[in-house]
Design a protein around this nucleic acid. Sequence first.
DNA 1: ACCTGAACACCGTTCAAGT
DNA 2: ACCTGAACACCGTTCAAGT
Lengths: 214, 214
Amino acid sequence: MRDKALGAPVSRPVLTRERVLDTAAGLVTQHGPDALTMRKLAAELGTAVTSIYWHVGNRESLLDALVERTVADLGALRPTGRTPAQRIVSLARALRRQLRAHPHLVAMVHERGLTERMFLPARQALVREAHAAGLEGARAAEVVRAVQFQVVGFVLVERNRERAPAQRPAEEEAWDAETAGPDAALARALARPVDEERLFVTSVRALVDGLLAR
Amino acid sequence: MRDKALGAPVSRPVLTRERVLDTAAGLVTQHGPDALTMRKLAAELGTAVTSIYWHVGNRESLLDALVERTVADLGALRPTGRTPAQRIVSLARALRRQLRAHPHLVAMVHERGLTERMFLPARQALVREAHAAGLEGARAAEVVRAVQFQVVGFVLVERNRERAPAQRPAEEEAWDAETAGPDAALARALARPVDEERLFVTSVRALVDGLLAR
DNA sequence: ACCTGAACACCGTTCAAGT
DNA sequence: ACCTGAACACCGTTCAAGT
Protein backbone atom coordinates (compact mmCIF):
# COMPACT_ATOMS: atom_id res chain seq x y z
CA MET A 1 0.00 0.00 0.00
CA ARG A 2 2.99 2.32 0.49
CA ASP A 3 6.65 2.09 -0.50
CA LYS A 4 9.35 1.51 2.04
CA ALA A 5 11.53 4.59 2.39
CA LEU A 6 14.87 3.93 0.74
CA GLY A 7 17.34 5.10 3.38
CA ALA A 8 21.11 4.96 3.63
CA PRO A 9 22.57 1.56 2.62
CA VAL A 10 22.89 0.14 6.13
CA SER A 11 22.53 -3.59 6.61
CA ARG A 12 19.68 -3.18 9.09
CA PRO A 13 17.95 0.17 8.52
CA VAL A 14 17.42 2.58 11.38
CA LEU A 15 14.21 2.29 13.32
CA THR A 16 11.72 4.96 12.37
CA ARG A 17 8.01 5.45 12.82
CA GLU A 18 7.60 4.85 9.07
CA ARG A 19 9.44 1.54 9.22
CA VAL A 20 7.41 0.41 12.22
CA LEU A 21 4.18 1.22 10.37
CA ASP A 22 5.34 -0.46 7.15
CA THR A 23 6.34 -3.64 8.95
CA ALA A 24 3.13 -3.66 10.97
CA ALA A 25 1.07 -3.19 7.80
CA GLY A 26 2.97 -6.09 6.26
CA LEU A 27 2.16 -8.37 9.17
CA VAL A 28 -1.51 -7.41 9.05
CA THR A 29 -1.76 -7.81 5.28
CA GLN A 30 -0.14 -11.23 5.32
CA HIS A 31 -1.47 -12.84 8.47
CA GLY A 32 -4.36 -10.70 9.71
CA PRO A 33 -4.69 -8.26 12.60
CA ASP A 34 -4.37 -10.91 15.31
CA ALA A 35 -0.84 -11.68 14.11
CA LEU A 36 0.21 -8.14 14.97
CA THR A 37 1.56 -8.52 18.49
CA MET A 38 4.14 -6.13 19.83
CA ARG A 39 6.57 -8.98 20.40
CA LYS A 40 6.27 -10.41 16.89
CA LEU A 41 6.59 -6.94 15.44
CA ALA A 42 9.75 -6.33 17.45
CA ALA A 43 11.21 -9.62 16.25
CA GLU A 44 10.41 -8.68 12.64
CA LEU A 45 12.08 -5.30 13.14
CA GLY A 46 15.06 -6.77 14.96
CA THR A 47 14.65 -4.51 17.98
CA ALA A 48 13.54 -4.72 21.56
CA VAL A 49 9.80 -4.74 22.11
CA THR A 50 10.00 -1.56 24.10
CA SER A 51 11.69 0.43 21.34
CA ILE A 52 8.44 0.38 19.40
CA TYR A 53 6.74 2.28 22.16
CA TRP A 54 9.09 5.21 21.73
CA HIS A 55 8.11 5.60 18.07
CA VAL A 56 4.39 4.89 17.95
CA GLY A 57 3.16 4.98 21.53
CA ASN A 58 1.23 1.85 22.41
CA ARG A 59 -0.46 -0.83 20.34
CA GLU A 60 -3.70 1.09 20.22
CA SER A 61 -2.19 4.18 18.60
CA LEU A 62 -0.15 1.96 16.27
CA LEU A 63 -3.40 0.52 14.96
CA ASP A 64 -4.86 4.01 14.79
CA ALA A 65 -1.97 5.14 12.60
CA LEU A 66 -2.30 2.09 10.36
CA VAL A 67 -5.99 2.74 9.85
CA GLU A 68 -5.34 6.41 9.23
CA ARG A 69 -2.94 5.55 6.41
CA THR A 70 -5.37 3.13 4.85
CA VAL A 71 -8.12 5.72 4.84
CA ALA A 72 -5.81 8.34 3.34
CA ASP A 73 -4.60 5.98 0.61
CA LEU A 74 -8.04 5.44 -0.90
CA GLY A 75 -7.83 7.18 -4.25
CA ALA A 76 -10.16 9.33 -6.27
CA LEU A 77 -13.02 7.90 -8.29
CA ARG A 78 -13.91 8.34 -11.95
CA PRO A 79 -17.50 7.41 -12.76
CA THR A 80 -18.32 6.03 -16.21
CA GLY A 81 -21.56 5.68 -18.13
CA ARG A 82 -24.05 7.93 -19.89
CA THR A 83 -26.95 8.42 -17.50
CA PRO A 84 -26.59 9.54 -13.88
CA ALA A 85 -28.04 6.19 -12.79
CA GLN A 86 -25.36 4.33 -14.75
CA ARG A 87 -22.67 6.57 -13.35
CA ILE A 88 -23.85 6.01 -9.79
CA VAL A 89 -23.75 2.26 -10.35
CA SER A 90 -20.22 2.56 -11.73
CA LEU A 91 -19.17 4.52 -8.65
CA ALA A 92 -20.63 1.87 -6.41
CA ARG A 93 -18.75 -0.87 -8.27
CA ALA A 94 -15.46 1.04 -8.06
CA LEU A 95 -15.94 1.54 -4.34
CA ARG A 96 -16.64 -2.10 -3.77
CA ARG A 97 -13.53 -3.07 -5.72
CA GLN A 98 -11.30 -0.73 -3.71
CA LEU A 99 -12.63 -1.98 -0.41
CA ARG A 100 -12.07 -5.59 -1.40
CA ALA A 101 -8.46 -4.95 -2.46
CA HIS A 102 -7.13 -4.68 1.09
CA PRO A 103 -9.46 -6.84 3.13
CA HIS A 104 -7.51 -6.99 6.38
CA LEU A 105 -6.70 -3.31 6.58
CA VAL A 106 -10.20 -2.33 5.54
CA ALA A 107 -11.53 -4.73 8.16
CA MET A 108 -9.55 -2.77 10.73
CA VAL A 109 -11.06 0.44 9.40
CA HIS A 110 -14.51 -1.12 9.86
CA GLU A 111 -13.70 -2.31 13.36
CA ARG A 112 -12.58 1.13 14.41
CA GLY A 113 -15.77 2.63 13.02
CA LEU A 114 -14.05 4.76 10.37
CA THR A 115 -15.81 3.29 7.37
CA GLU A 116 -17.77 6.49 6.93
CA ARG A 117 -14.71 8.71 6.86
CA MET A 118 -13.16 6.45 4.24
CA PHE A 119 -16.16 7.29 2.07
CA LEU A 120 -15.81 11.04 2.04
CA PRO A 121 -14.28 11.17 -1.49
CA ALA A 122 -17.05 8.93 -2.78
CA ARG A 123 -19.63 11.25 -1.29
CA GLN A 124 -18.35 14.11 -3.40
CA ALA A 125 -18.73 12.11 -6.59
CA LEU A 126 -22.20 10.96 -5.58
CA VAL A 127 -23.36 14.51 -4.94
CA ARG A 128 -22.28 15.43 -8.46
CA GLU A 129 -24.35 12.62 -9.96
CA ALA A 130 -27.39 13.41 -7.83
CA HIS A 131 -27.27 16.95 -9.14
CA ALA A 132 -26.89 15.69 -12.69
CA ALA A 133 -30.01 13.64 -12.15
CA GLY A 134 -31.90 16.82 -11.38
CA LEU A 135 -32.16 16.35 -7.62
CA GLU A 136 -31.34 19.06 -5.11
CA GLY A 137 -31.28 19.70 -1.40
CA ALA A 138 -32.71 17.11 0.95
CA ARG A 139 -33.75 14.82 -1.93
CA ALA A 140 -30.18 14.73 -3.27
CA ALA A 141 -28.80 14.13 0.22
CA GLU A 142 -31.14 11.19 0.61
CA VAL A 143 -29.83 9.57 -2.56
CA VAL A 144 -26.22 10.10 -1.50
CA ARG A 145 -26.78 8.56 1.89
CA ALA A 146 -28.90 5.67 0.68
CA VAL A 147 -26.27 4.64 -1.89
CA GLN A 148 -23.48 5.02 0.63
CA PHE A 149 -25.29 2.87 3.20
CA GLN A 150 -26.08 0.34 0.49
CA VAL A 151 -22.48 -0.04 -0.69
CA VAL A 152 -20.91 -0.09 2.77
CA GLY A 153 -23.56 -2.50 3.95
CA PHE A 154 -23.06 -4.85 1.04
CA VAL A 155 -19.31 -4.96 1.53
CA LEU A 156 -19.77 -5.60 5.25
CA VAL A 157 -22.14 -8.45 4.47
CA GLU A 158 -19.67 -9.94 2.01
CA ARG A 159 -16.87 -9.79 4.56
CA ASN A 160 -19.20 -11.44 7.01
CA ARG A 161 -20.02 -14.23 4.60
CA GLU A 162 -16.41 -14.86 3.74
CA ARG A 163 -15.57 -15.49 7.34
CA ALA A 164 -18.58 -17.70 7.83
CA PRO A 165 -17.74 -21.31 8.64
CA ALA A 166 -18.57 -23.80 5.90
CA GLN A 167 -22.33 -24.16 6.05
CA ARG A 168 -23.68 -27.63 6.46
CA PRO A 169 -25.20 -27.85 2.98
CA ALA A 170 -27.67 -30.52 4.00
CA GLU A 171 -29.32 -28.20 6.47
CA GLU A 172 -29.58 -25.30 4.09
CA GLU A 173 -30.91 -27.32 1.19
CA ALA A 174 -33.50 -29.08 3.29
CA TRP A 175 -34.65 -25.80 4.70
CA ASP A 176 -34.89 -24.08 1.35
CA ALA A 177 -36.84 -26.91 -0.22
CA GLU A 178 -39.32 -26.81 2.64
CA THR A 179 -39.67 -23.06 2.32
CA ALA A 180 -40.06 -22.82 -1.40
CA GLY A 181 -42.93 -25.25 -1.43
CA PRO A 182 -44.07 -25.93 -4.98
CA ASP A 183 -41.62 -23.42 -6.48
CA ALA A 184 -38.76 -25.81 -7.29
CA ALA A 185 -36.94 -23.23 -9.39
CA LEU A 186 -36.80 -20.93 -6.38
CA ALA A 187 -35.39 -23.69 -4.18
CA ARG A 188 -32.69 -24.39 -6.78
CA ALA A 189 -31.87 -20.70 -7.07
CA LEU A 190 -31.53 -20.29 -3.32
CA ALA A 191 -29.38 -23.41 -3.08
CA ARG A 192 -26.89 -22.05 -5.60
CA PRO A 193 -24.04 -19.90 -4.24
CA VAL A 194 -24.66 -16.18 -4.52
CA ASP A 195 -23.16 -14.37 -7.51
CA GLU A 196 -22.24 -11.39 -5.40
CA GLU A 197 -21.11 -9.06 -8.16
CA ARG A 198 -24.37 -9.64 -9.97
CA LEU A 199 -26.53 -9.25 -6.88
CA PHE A 200 -24.65 -6.10 -6.01
CA VAL A 201 -25.23 -4.47 -9.38
CA THR A 202 -28.86 -5.57 -9.40
CA SER A 203 -29.49 -4.15 -5.95
CA VAL A 204 -27.77 -0.84 -6.52
CA ARG A 205 -29.55 -0.41 -9.82
CA ALA A 206 -32.94 -1.19 -8.26
CA LEU A 207 -32.27 1.17 -5.37
CA VAL A 208 -31.19 4.01 -7.64
CA ASP A 209 -34.13 3.45 -9.99
CA GLY A 210 -36.50 3.38 -7.06
CA LEU A 211 -35.07 6.58 -5.61
CA LEU A 212 -34.97 8.54 -8.85
CA ALA A 213 -38.47 7.44 -9.86
CA ARG A 214 -40.21 9.03 -6.89
CA MET B 1 -32.58 -13.80 26.84
CA ARG B 2 -33.18 -17.07 28.69
CA ASP B 3 -34.29 -17.88 32.20
CA LYS B 4 -31.95 -19.26 34.77
CA ALA B 5 -32.90 -22.81 35.64
CA LEU B 6 -34.49 -22.83 39.06
CA GLY B 7 -32.68 -25.67 40.80
CA ALA B 8 -32.74 -26.97 44.34
CA PRO B 9 -32.58 -24.21 46.95
CA VAL B 10 -28.83 -24.38 47.58
CA SER B 11 -27.00 -21.22 48.58
CA ARG B 12 -24.57 -21.45 45.68
CA PRO B 13 -26.12 -23.49 42.86
CA VAL B 14 -24.29 -26.43 41.34
CA LEU B 15 -22.09 -25.71 38.37
CA THR B 16 -23.74 -26.77 35.11
CA ARG B 17 -23.20 -26.01 31.47
CA GLU B 18 -26.41 -23.97 31.54
CA ARG B 19 -25.25 -21.85 34.45
CA VAL B 20 -21.90 -21.23 32.80
CA LEU B 21 -23.63 -20.09 29.62
CA ASP B 22 -26.12 -17.89 31.49
CA THR B 23 -23.39 -16.18 33.48
CA ALA B 24 -21.25 -15.74 30.38
CA ALA B 25 -24.19 -14.24 28.49
CA GLY B 26 -24.75 -11.88 31.40
CA LEU B 27 -21.15 -10.68 31.31
CA VAL B 28 -21.31 -10.14 27.56
CA THR B 29 -24.64 -8.32 27.70
CA GLN B 30 -23.51 -6.00 30.46
CA HIS B 31 -19.89 -5.28 29.64
CA GLY B 32 -19.27 -6.51 26.11
CA PRO B 33 -17.44 -9.55 24.74
CA ASP B 34 -13.99 -8.38 25.85
CA ALA B 35 -15.11 -8.56 29.47
CA LEU B 36 -15.67 -12.29 29.07
CA THR B 37 -12.38 -13.73 30.29
CA MET B 38 -12.20 -17.20 31.73
CA ARG B 39 -10.85 -15.83 34.99
CA LYS B 40 -13.59 -13.22 35.43
CA LEU B 41 -16.20 -15.80 34.55
CA ALA B 42 -14.81 -18.19 37.15
CA ALA B 43 -14.88 -15.44 39.76
CA GLU B 44 -18.49 -14.67 38.89
CA LEU B 45 -19.37 -18.36 39.18
CA GLY B 46 -17.41 -18.82 42.38
CA THR B 47 -15.38 -21.72 41.01
CA ALA B 48 -11.88 -22.45 39.85
CA VAL B 49 -11.05 -21.29 36.35
CA THR B 50 -10.36 -24.79 35.24
CA SER B 51 -13.77 -26.11 36.25
CA ILE B 52 -15.28 -24.19 33.36
CA TYR B 53 -13.27 -26.23 30.93
CA TRP B 54 -14.89 -29.42 32.05
CA HIS B 55 -18.38 -28.08 31.22
CA VAL B 56 -17.93 -26.09 28.03
CA GLY B 57 -14.53 -27.01 26.63
CA ASN B 58 -12.42 -23.94 25.95
CA ARG B 59 -13.26 -20.28 25.49
CA GLU B 60 -13.77 -20.72 21.78
CA SER B 61 -16.52 -23.30 22.13
CA LEU B 62 -18.06 -21.31 24.98
CA LEU B 63 -18.49 -18.41 22.56
CA ASP B 64 -19.79 -20.81 19.94
CA ALA B 65 -22.45 -22.04 22.34
CA LEU B 66 -23.42 -18.49 23.28
CA VAL B 67 -23.81 -17.51 19.64
CA GLU B 68 -25.76 -20.67 18.93
CA ARG B 69 -28.26 -19.80 21.65
CA THR B 70 -28.65 -16.26 20.36
CA VAL B 71 -29.36 -17.49 16.85
CA ALA B 72 -31.89 -20.02 18.13
CA ASP B 73 -33.67 -17.43 20.27
CA LEU B 74 -34.59 -15.16 17.38
CA GLY B 75 -38.33 -15.53 17.11
CA ALA B 76 -40.76 -15.82 14.24
CA LEU B 77 -41.90 -12.84 12.21
CA ARG B 78 -45.39 -11.57 11.42
CA PRO B 79 -45.51 -9.21 8.44
CA THR B 80 -48.17 -6.49 8.35
CA GLY B 81 -49.55 -4.33 5.55
CA ARG B 82 -51.80 -4.74 2.53
CA THR B 83 -49.48 -4.98 -0.48
CA PRO B 84 -46.55 -7.41 -0.73
CA ALA B 85 -44.21 -4.41 -0.92
CA GLN B 86 -45.60 -3.01 2.34
CA ARG B 87 -45.32 -6.42 3.98
CA ILE B 88 -41.70 -6.80 2.89
CA VAL B 89 -40.91 -3.41 4.36
CA SER B 90 -42.61 -4.41 7.61
CA LEU B 91 -40.53 -7.59 7.72
CA ALA B 92 -37.38 -5.59 7.21
CA ARG B 93 -38.30 -3.24 10.04
CA ALA B 94 -39.06 -6.12 12.39
CA LEU B 95 -35.73 -7.74 11.58
CA ARG B 96 -33.84 -4.56 12.22
CA ARG B 97 -35.58 -4.13 15.57
CA GLN B 98 -34.74 -7.67 16.67
CA LEU B 99 -31.10 -7.30 15.74
CA ARG B 100 -30.79 -4.04 17.61
CA ALA B 101 -32.31 -5.50 20.79
CA HIS B 102 -29.23 -7.50 21.75
CA PRO B 103 -26.33 -5.55 20.29
CA HIS B 104 -23.44 -7.34 21.98
CA LEU B 105 -24.64 -10.86 21.38
CA VAL B 106 -25.65 -10.05 17.81
CA ALA B 107 -22.24 -8.48 17.32
CA MET B 108 -20.73 -11.81 18.29
CA VAL B 109 -22.98 -13.54 15.78
CA HIS B 110 -21.69 -11.14 13.14
CA GLU B 111 -18.08 -11.67 14.13
CA ARG B 112 -18.44 -15.41 13.87
CA GLY B 113 -19.98 -15.06 10.42
CA LEU B 114 -23.35 -16.52 11.39
CA THR B 115 -25.47 -13.52 10.45
CA GLU B 116 -26.86 -15.43 7.50
CA ARG B 117 -27.97 -18.38 9.54
CA MET B 118 -29.73 -16.05 11.93
CA PHE B 119 -31.79 -14.92 8.97
CA LEU B 120 -33.18 -18.28 7.93
CA PRO B 121 -36.63 -17.65 9.49
CA ALA B 122 -36.80 -14.28 7.78
CA ARG B 123 -36.03 -15.92 4.47
CA GLN B 124 -39.10 -18.07 4.75
CA ALA B 125 -41.32 -15.03 5.28
CA LEU B 126 -39.69 -13.19 2.40
CA VAL B 127 -40.25 -16.07 0.03
CA ARG B 128 -43.93 -15.98 0.87
CA GLU B 129 -44.17 -12.28 0.03
CA ALA B 130 -42.20 -12.64 -3.19
CA HIS B 131 -44.68 -15.27 -4.30
CA ALA B 132 -47.58 -13.03 -3.30
CA ALA B 133 -46.07 -10.33 -5.50
CA GLY B 134 -46.32 -12.70 -8.45
CA LEU B 135 -42.63 -13.55 -8.71
CA GLU B 136 -41.31 -17.08 -9.08
CA GLY B 137 -38.08 -18.99 -9.41
CA ALA B 138 -34.87 -17.09 -9.91
CA ARG B 139 -36.66 -13.73 -9.91
CA ALA B 140 -38.19 -14.44 -6.51
CA ALA B 141 -34.85 -15.67 -5.18
CA GLU B 142 -33.24 -12.43 -6.31
CA VAL B 143 -35.72 -10.35 -4.34
CA VAL B 144 -35.25 -12.49 -1.23
CA ARG B 145 -31.51 -12.17 -1.38
CA ALA B 146 -31.42 -8.48 -2.23
CA VAL B 147 -33.67 -7.62 0.71
CA GLN B 148 -31.70 -9.86 3.04
CA PHE B 149 -28.39 -8.27 2.01
CA GLN B 150 -29.95 -4.84 2.32
CA VAL B 151 -31.23 -5.37 5.87
CA VAL B 152 -28.13 -7.13 7.17
CA GLY B 153 -25.94 -4.53 5.52
CA PHE B 154 -27.87 -1.65 7.00
CA VAL B 155 -27.68 -3.06 10.50
CA LEU B 156 -23.95 -3.68 10.11
CA VAL B 157 -23.45 -0.09 8.96
CA GLU B 158 -25.42 1.20 11.93
CA ARG B 159 -23.34 -0.84 14.34
CA ASN B 160 -20.28 0.52 12.64
CA ARG B 161 -21.46 4.08 13.00
CA GLU B 162 -22.35 3.67 16.65
CA ARG B 163 -18.84 2.61 17.47
CA ALA B 164 -17.34 5.41 15.41
CA PRO B 165 -15.38 7.94 17.44
CA ALA B 166 -17.01 11.36 17.66
CA GLN B 167 -16.42 12.94 14.29
CA ARG B 168 -14.69 16.28 14.30
CA PRO B 169 -17.73 18.26 13.12
CA ALA B 170 -15.62 21.09 11.71
CA GLU B 171 -14.03 18.75 9.22
CA GLU B 172 -17.25 17.20 8.05
CA GLU B 173 -19.11 20.48 7.70
CA ALA B 174 -16.31 22.16 5.81
CA TRP B 175 -16.04 19.22 3.48
CA ASP B 176 -19.75 19.02 2.81
CA ALA B 177 -20.04 22.73 2.11
CA GLU B 178 -17.20 22.47 -0.38
CA THR B 179 -18.81 19.48 -2.05
CA ALA B 180 -22.31 20.77 -2.27
CA GLY B 181 -21.22 23.92 -4.06
CA PRO B 182 -24.21 26.18 -4.68
CA ASP B 183 -26.68 23.67 -3.22
CA ALA B 184 -26.81 25.02 0.34
CA ALA B 185 -29.84 22.92 1.21
CA LEU B 186 -27.87 19.78 0.36
CA ALA B 187 -24.98 20.88 2.56
CA ARG B 188 -27.37 21.47 5.45
CA ALA B 189 -29.04 18.10 4.90
CA LEU B 190 -25.72 16.26 4.88
CA ALA B 191 -24.56 18.12 7.99
CA ARG B 192 -27.61 16.96 9.95
CA PRO B 193 -27.34 13.61 11.75
CA VAL B 194 -28.86 10.70 9.86
CA ASP B 195 -32.42 9.70 10.75
CA GLU B 196 -31.60 6.03 10.45
CA GLU B 197 -35.10 4.63 10.80
CA ARG B 198 -36.30 6.95 8.06
CA LEU B 199 -33.36 6.25 5.76
CA PHE B 200 -33.83 2.55 6.33
CA VAL B 201 -37.49 2.58 5.37
CA THR B 202 -36.83 4.82 2.38
CA SER B 203 -34.05 2.57 1.10
CA VAL B 204 -35.91 -0.69 1.55
CA ARG B 205 -39.00 0.77 -0.10
CA ALA B 206 -36.97 2.08 -3.05
CA LEU B 207 -35.16 -1.24 -3.42
CA VAL B 208 -38.37 -3.25 -3.35
CA ASP B 209 -40.13 -0.87 -5.75
CA GLY B 210 -37.15 -1.03 -8.10
CA LEU B 211 -37.07 -4.82 -7.98
CA LEU B 212 -40.79 -5.37 -8.41
CA ALA B 213 -41.04 -2.82 -11.24
CA ARG B 214 -38.69 -4.66 -13.57
C1' DA C 1 -18.03 -37.57 37.27
C1' DC C 2 -16.52 -33.40 38.72
C1' DC C 3 -13.28 -29.98 40.76
C1' DT C 4 -8.76 -28.09 42.08
C1' DG C 5 -4.09 -25.39 42.10
C1' DA C 6 0.28 -25.23 39.94
C1' DA C 7 2.59 -24.39 35.88
C1' DC C 8 3.33 -22.96 31.04
C1' DA C 9 3.51 -19.97 27.22
C1' DC C 10 1.86 -16.12 25.76
C1' DC C 11 0.15 -10.99 26.03
C1' DG C 12 0.64 -5.27 26.55
C1' DT C 13 2.81 -1.93 29.27
C1' DT C 14 5.85 0.61 32.64
C1' DC C 15 10.10 2.07 34.21
C1' DA C 16 14.68 2.83 35.62
C1' DA C 17 18.89 2.48 33.45
C1' DG C 18 21.90 2.82 29.75
C1' DT C 19 24.24 5.42 25.53
C1' DA D 1 17.13 11.43 21.47
C1' DC D 2 16.85 6.75 21.29
C1' DC D 3 17.23 1.92 22.93
C1' DT D 4 17.41 -1.80 26.39
C1' DG D 5 16.07 -5.78 29.75
C1' DA D 6 13.65 -6.68 33.89
C1' DA D 7 9.36 -6.74 35.97
C1' DC D 8 4.30 -6.48 36.42
C1' DA D 9 -0.34 -7.75 35.72
C1' DC D 10 -2.94 -9.95 32.87
C1' DC D 11 -4.36 -13.84 29.39
C1' DG D 12 -5.97 -19.11 27.76
C1' DT D 13 -4.81 -23.76 28.39
C1' DT D 14 -2.86 -28.25 30.09
C1' DC D 15 -2.28 -31.61 33.44
C1' DA D 16 -1.60 -34.41 37.34
C1' DA D 17 -3.85 -34.89 41.49
C1' DG D 18 -7.66 -34.89 44.38
C1' DT D 19 -12.73 -36.43 45.87
